[in-house]
């Protein structure tokens, strides 16, 4: 599989090129920041009509990862819906699609800042999920360890021969891993940003997603 493995709190995890995290020993597939219904929310709020295919595209990729890993559990790490209205107004065929993906496996929705309340969708709804020795939550808590989170949409840039290559990226150190955003229309926050530099240990690394994932020391702002 197209992946890079690393260890967190003694657990072996795989960062997939798609941006999903695979915990093989537990059969857990974890994705963060799906932002389903984003184009609908944008249209509702600004009248800007983006191509309404983002939910479809995100689910297509998620379905492929589930099929590939045969995951027994899927954890969506929060901001799964762009807002609660977007969750409510998901078109019927996309709702049914999610239900089909849920069939035969455990499905956990972690709450995020975009989708803080309960959503009328099958699966377990939790503020956070401890699954020893790891804990899954939306926003990283300073001082935590064995933590898997999302929220920041990290991305990392490398400058190679005058060309800049930027990709969504996993960030990890001995305490935590932060997942890149999985949703199709999600932007990113550079790993050089203050919040991320602060959160991650100096020896943190980044795994750039893409056709083949690549691991580098986490790019930081130069001072």
């Amino acid at each position: 599989m197209n992946k890079i493995s690393f260890t967190l709190a003694g657990s072996r995890l795989d960062a997939l090129g798609s941006g999903a995290l695979w915990w093989g020993d537990q059969g857990i597939l974890c994705v963060s920041d799906l932002h389903l219904g984003k184009s609908e929310r944008v249209a509702r709020r600004s009248g800007q009509a983006l191509p309404p295919y983002d939910t479809r595209d995100t689910l297509n990729r998620l379905a492929a990862d589930i099929a590939r890993t045969q995951a027994r559990t899927v954890i969506c790490l929060g901001d799964s819906f762009d807002d609660l209205d977007a969750a409510r107004s998901l078109p019927e065929d996309e709702r049914l699609w999610i239900i089909r993906l849920q069939a035969g496996r455990r499905w956990v929705w972690i709450e995020g800042n975009h989708d803080p309340g309960p959503i009328k969708m099958g699966g377990t709804h939790l503020a956070e999920l401890p699954q020893a020795p790891l804990i899954f939550r939306h926003i990283a808590a300073p001082g935590a360890s064995g933590e898997v989170s999302g929220h920041y949409h990290p991305k990392a840039s490398l400058r190679i021969r005058g060309r800049q290559i930027t990709r969504p990226a996993f960030l990890f150190d001995t305490d935590r891993v932060i997942l890149p955003a999985y949703g199709t229309y999600t932007g990113g926050l550079r790993s050089t940003a203050h919040e991320l530099s602060h959160l991650m240990r100096p020896e943190a690394r980044a795994i750039l997603t893409g056709p083949t994932p690549h691991m580098v020391p986490m790019p930081r702002a130069r001072q």
């Binding site: 490398l158 190679i160 060309r163 290559i165 690394r205 893409g210 690549h214 020391p217």
Partner: peptide, 19 residues
């Protein structure tokens, strides 16, 4: 080509960092 460049650069950076 781009994947190849990335792979080389990643290796270089990690080696430089003593990894």
């Amino acid at each position: 080509a781009e994947e190849r460049l990335l792979a080389q650069e990643a290796e270089r950076l990690l080696t430089t960092a003593g990894i």
